[in-house]
Design a protein around this nucleic acid. Structure first.
Lengths: 356, 356
DNA sequence: CAATTGATGACAACCGATTGCCAAATGTTG
DNA sequence: CAACATTTGGCAATCGGTTGTCATCAATTG
C-alpha cells in the first residue's frame, strides 16, 4: 500500500484551504489584523482594549484594518483568557409564567445596554435544576440573577460566595436582593375589601417554597388581626391558571366573600371556574390578584390586582449585579432594593353580598 | 528605593494562593484530575470524551477522581479548542409577545434534553438587531433558530451559508424551516364566518415585513374569491394589544361584520376597544384571532382563534437543527416541516347581524 | 551632552480544553 | 520465541485572545 505523505500545513494555509472548501469566509482574528499591519497580535489586542498603551498612529492603522476585515472578537477566547465571560445568567422558575416576561425583558434591555449577554434558564420550579444551573453558570457567566429562588438560605449564601448573585423576590441576609413590596400592597388590598364590607376573606396561598407567599401571608394575617377581620389561609396552589379551579372551589366551600390570590394566574383561573359554576364576580365573590400580568386587564371581569413594577425590577437587579461586577464607581452599591407596588382596582371586586 | 523581587509562581501555587485569598474553591480542571491520577491531561480528556481509547482501569480511576473533585468541563475552553460551543441561539422579535412563550419553552426543553444551551435573543422587531445578533451568534453558537425573520431572503440565505439555521414561520428556499400552517386555518376561519352568514369581512394585517401575514392574506384572498365573498385588507397593525384599538376603529368604519386578525394580540385589543365603544361581540361584530395564545381563552368574550401547536413547533425546529449539526444518523433530515392548525371556536364569533 | 524617564510594542506564557502523532506496552499469531 | 498488529497514553500544537515582562527608542531634564 502506498503511503501518501501529507505535508504539514501552516495555520494560514489550512484556513485558506478551509475557506476554499466551504466557500465560507472565516471570521477575522487579531492575527489577521496583526499580519495586515505588520505588528504583533498582542499589540492589536492592546490597541483594541487598552488604546492608551499604543501609539495613536499604529492604533489608527489597526482600527482601520479591523474595520476592513469586519473583525469581531471571539467571546469564547476572550472569556478563556480574561476570566470574564460578558454573560449574565437569569434563572426563572417557569418561562411560560407571564410574570417573567416583563422581568426578562427588563434584564435583557439593561444587560444589552451594558454590553452583556443574557443566558436565560428555566429551572422548572425545581431546586435541583436551580442548583445545577447555578453550578453550570458559575463558569459561563460573570454573575447570576435568581428569581423566586427555591433554594435554602444556606445554599444561596454558599452560591453567592462563589459567584456574584442578585436575587429577586427572595431576601437572604448577605445576598443582594430586589424585593417587590407585595406584602404592603396586600394590606392595601385587605383595606380595599374591608371598605367594601367584606369580613370573611381568604388568602389563596402559593407554593410552600415561595418566600413571597409566606411574607405576603404574614403581612396579611397581621393586618387582619389589626383590623379585626377574619382571614383564613387556603392552599397551597401552584401558580398556574389550572390551579384556579381548585382555589375557586376551596374559596366557595369555605364560605368567604372575597379572596386575595397569591398571583394573577391563580386569580384568573378562579374567575374562569367561578363563572363555570355560575357564581358571579364581584356580586357573589370578590377576587384580588397580584402582579398585574399580561391578561389581568382583559379577563372577565377585569382583575383587581396589586401592580408591580416588574420590568423595572429586572433593570434594577441588573444594575445591582453590574455594580458588584465592576466596583469601580465608588458608589454605595445598595444590597437591597424595595420596589413599590400599588393596588389597581378593576371589576373583580365589589361590595360584599348581603348576608342571608 | 528598594526593589522587591517577586518570585515567579507556578500555576498551582498561584491557584492555591487565590483560593486562600478568596476563600473560594476553584473549579477543578483536567489538570487537577491528571495530577491526582498521575497521568497526562490529554489522557483525562480522552477518558472523559473518548472512553474507548483509554484503558478501562485508568478510566475508572479518572472518573472517580473527577467525581471526587466535582469536575465540570469548562465550556469556554471546550468551545475554543473543539470549535463546537454546545449552544444554540434562538431569535425572537419580541420576548413579551405571549406567542413566543410556548415556543421558547419548546426549544428550551428540547435543547436541554440534547445537552445544548439556549441563547435567547430579543431582536426588538428590527432587522438590524437581527442581523448583528446572527453575526454575533455565529461565533458563540453552533446553530440558530430564527422566528418570524425580518431579513430579506438573500440575507437569510447568506447567513445560512455561514452557520446552520432553521427558521420558524419564514419560508425561504434553501433554508430549513418550520412553518405553522395558518394560511389553511385562515380558510377554515373564513368558511366559519361565511357559515354564520357574514359576507363583508376584513383582514387586519400584521407588519408588512411579516411573511406570515402576507401568506395568510394571500390564502384568504384566494379563498374569498373562490367563495364569492368580499374580504378587504386593513392595516398594517403592530402585533400588540395596543394596536387593537386602531384595528377596531378601522373595522367599524369599513362597515364589515366580521374580522380575521393577524394574531390574537390584535384581536384581544380589538375586543377591548369594541367593548369601550359599546359595540357588542359577537352580536354586532365577530372577531377571529390567530395562535391561541395565553389569554385567548379567558378574554371577554373568549376568542375564536386558529390554534397552533407552538411548543411543538419549537421542539421540531430544534430537532431539525440538531439533525443539521450531527448528520450522523443517516436519516433524511427534512428541510421543511408544516405544522397543522385548526380553528377553535369560542364566543367572539356569532351569526351576522341582520342587515338594516 | 549624558542620564533619567516614559511611552511603545514585541515576545512568550497562559486560560482549559481537544486532537494528531508517535512511542511504549500489550496481545496475537506463525 | 520472534515478528507483527493493536492498544494505550504522553507530548506538543492549537483554538483566539489577554497580560506580564522587557528591550527599544524618543523625549525630557540636569
Amino acid at each position: 500500500m502506498a503511503i501518501v505523505t501529507v505535508p504539514v500545513l501552516s495555520r494560514s494555509e489550512r484556513n485558506a484551504m478551509a475557506m476554499q472548501a466551504a466557500g465560507t469566509e472565516r471570521p477575522a482574528t487579531i492575527h489577521d489584523i496583526a499580519a495586515m499591519c505588520g505588528v504583533a497580535a498582542s499589540t492589536v489586542s492592546r490597541a483594541l482594549s487598552t488604546p492608551d498603551r499604543v501609539n495613536i498612529r499604529t492604533r489608527a492603522r489597526i482600527e482601520a484594518a479591523a474595520a476592513e476585515l469586519n473583525y469581531t472578537p471571539n467571546s469564547q477566547a476572550k472569556a478563556l483568557s480574561s476570566g470574564r465571560t460578558g454573560a449574565v445568567g437569569v434563572l426563572v422558575p417557569d418561562i411560560t409564567n407571564p410574570f417573567y416576561f416583563d422581568l426578562i425583558r427588563g434584564t435583557q434591555l439593561q444587560l444589552k445596554a451594558a454590553g452583556y449577554t443574557q443566558l436565560l434558564v428555566d429551572t422548572e420550579e425545581s431546586d435541583e435544576v436551580e442548583a445545577s444551573s447555578m453550578e453550570q453558570l458559575r463558569k459561563s457567566a460573570d454573575g447570576i440573577i435568581v428569581t423566586a429562588s427555591r433554594l435554602s438560605d444556606e445554599a444561596l449564601l454558599a452560591a453567592a460566595a462563589k459567584i456574584p448573585i442578585v436575587t429577586i423576590n427572595r431576601d437572604v441576609a448577605g445576598v443582594p436582593a430586589v424585593v417587590i413590596d407585595t406584602p404592603s400592597a396586600t394590606s392595601q388590598a385587605l383595606d380595599h375589601l374591608i371598605s367594601l364590607g367584606h369580613t370573611r376573606i381568604a388568602y389563596m396561598a402559593g407554593p410552600l417554597t415561595s418566600q413571597s407567599s409566606t411574607l405576603r401571608w404574614n403581612a396579611l394575617a397581621a393586618a387582619a388581626e389589626d383590623r379585626g377581620v377574619e382571614v383564613r389561609r387556603l392552599g397551597p396552589f401552584a401558580p398556574k391558571t389550572q390551579s384556579g379551579a381548585a382555589a375557586a372551589d376551596a374559596a366557595v366551600h369555605s364560605g368567604v366573600t372575597a379572596c386575595i390570590a397569591f398571583n394573577d394566574l391563580i386569580a384568573i383561573g378562579m374567575l374562569q371556574r367561578l363563572r363555570e359554576r355560575g357564581i358571579r364576580v364581584p356580586e357573589d365573590m370578590s377576587v384580588v390578584g397580584c402582579d398585574d400580568i399580561f391578561g389581568a386587564d382583559f379577563c372577565n371581569p377585569p382583575l383587581t390586582t396589586m401592580a408591580s413594577p416588574i420590568e423595572q425590577a429586572g433593570r434594577v437587579s441588573v444594575s445591582m449585579l453590574l455594580a458588584q461586577l465592576n466596583p469601580l464607581a465608588g458608589g454605595g452599591s445598595r444590597s437591597r432594593s424595595l420596589m413599590p407596588t400599588h393596588l389597581t382596582v378593576r371589576g373583580s371586586t365589589g361590595p360584599a353580598p348581603q348576608s342571608l
